[in-house]
Amino acid sequence: MASKVYFADLRARSADENKGSKIQRLFDKVYDGMFSEDDLVAVKVHFGERGNDSFVNPILLRYIVDKVKESAKKVFLTDTNTLYYGSRHDSVEHLVTAILNGFDYAVVGAPIIIADGLQGKNERIVKVGQKNFDVVRIAGDIYEASGMVVVSHFKGHGISGFGGALKNLAMGCATIEGKLEQHECAKPIIDGDCDLCSVCVDNCPIGALKLAEDGVEIDYEKCIACMNCMDTCPNEVYDLNWEKDVPVFIERMMEYSLGAVKGKEAKILYFNFLTNITPDCDCVAWSDYPIVPDIGILASKDPVAIDAASYDLVNSQMGFKNSMLEKNFEENADKFRGVWSEVDARYQLVYAEKIGLGSRDYHLIKI
């Protein structure tokens, strides 16, 4: 059975057509009274790395928070600390980054709680009983929340093809150890000529790289798959086993998504913002030029359906020639394959549906 996905475009010629009004109307379409006054409701969002500016605008997030507060008085914004060593690896820097990026109480109307604790060790073990994981590690304060509103910036991603609601659940609700469990099947391999420049060695946060006479060596026992080496190497020495490892990585992500919603499936709403559709995750410390025009905002109670609809809407656009797109510029061509040619992003949707997270069949309803 097709799931309902509600869509609002970005055209506006009056006050009741502005983005805030449309967000409120989208909320009313998907909200069925699932929150009560005493519920602790987490608004799961990505606060953006310092230097990134393509994350969901906190001014718009306020409209969602205010709608939740009509039913539940205890609402908090949340995210989890990162596996990589950027500006959100521990809760202190994470909170500072969130505030610098505009997620202040005065703006969003809710406090921030980093759900996995000071150093990412506040976790609950959740049984999922799937192919890759029997149990997963979910951030304690997300697990303890009564319900969630998952607010996602839909964009590209170098290993999963795109990031939307499903990835926001998977990586975004996992502890640091949980993120490592998802990533450890897809560690970098050496597939190029090293000139011994040592840039990657200097940028490895845990000392897993060293220079030998004939090039760089990786200590896979230490490697946390943060991909700093791939991101910083000037000579493209590193690669991934795209055919063998990346599909397993996607499966692991989807199994973590299943753990994130466990026990509160009927008390979660999803919003996807199809704006600033960049080629990269908001975890990078920059925002590249978008690959397609801004499209709109979607809301649903089904994370698979909302990502499927978002994926199709992005692909229906004409691609921007002055972006990171290398091919598939025409309407209805796969824009994410046009950037990340080695990744079949649709596998997220296929596997998520297979394990019961939702349906790829959707009915798009424009408000």
Rank of each mutant, 00 (worst) to 15 (best):
A266G: 13
C204L: 00
K127R: 13
I277H: 01
H183F: 12
Y256C: 10
S316V: 07
C185N: 14
S160W: 03
A42Y: 04
V30N: 00
E353W: 01
M171R: 00
E331W: 07
G172C: 10
M324P: 03
V284T: 04
Y220N: 12
A170Y: 06
E49S: 11
A42I: 04
D202T: 12
A115P: 01
N168E: 11
L10H: 07
L166A: 04
V292P: 02
V339F: 00
K121T: 13
I367C: 05
T80I: 09
G109E: 02
H157N: 09
S152F: 04
A165E: 03
V43M: 05
N81I: 14
A8V: 07
K22E: 08
F103M: 03
D231R: 15
D193F: 11
P293D: 11
V304C: 07
A165S: 12
V216K: 03
K121V: 15
I112N: 12
R124V: 11
D239S: 11
T78F: 12
E37D: 15
S146F: 03
M254H: 03
S3F: 04
D16G: 09
I23W: 00
Y31M: 01
S310R: 05
R13A: 13
D104T: 07
I367W: 02
D90S: 10
Y6P: 04
Y85K: 12
A145G: 07
K29H: 07
A225P: 06
M171K: 00
S71F: 15
F249N: 08
V96G: 09
E181H: 11
P111H: 00
I297F: 05
D288F: 02
L100Y: 13
D116P: 10
T97I: 08
C197Y: 06
L258R: 02
V5Y: 04
P290Y: 05
M34Y: 01
A266L: 09
M227N: 11
G296D: 05
G178D: 02
V96S: 15
R50K: 15
E353V: 02
V107T: 15
H157S: 04
I138P: 10
L10V: 07
D307G: 06
N241Y: 02
D191R: 14
G358R: 01
F103P: 00
I112F: 08
F47K: 10
E330N: 12
A165C: 01
K222A: 08
E181F: 09
V65W: 06
S146P: 02
H183V: 04
R88L: 03
V68D: 09
A170F: 02
R62A: 04
F336Q: 01
N52C: 12
D28R: 15
E144V: 09
C233R: 07
Y256H: 14
G109Y: 12
G86K: 11
M34V: 09
I277S: 06
K262L: 10
V65D: 09
D141K: 14
G263R: 05
V75L: 11
K4C: 02
D116R: 13
D38Q: 06
T78Y: 11
E255D: 05
A12Q: 11
A145Y: 01
Q317P: 06
N57Y: 14
K210S: 14
Q130S: 13
I190Y: 01
N52M: 03
A15S: 12
T278G: 06
K167H: 01
C173P: 12
D334R: 05
Y143N: 10
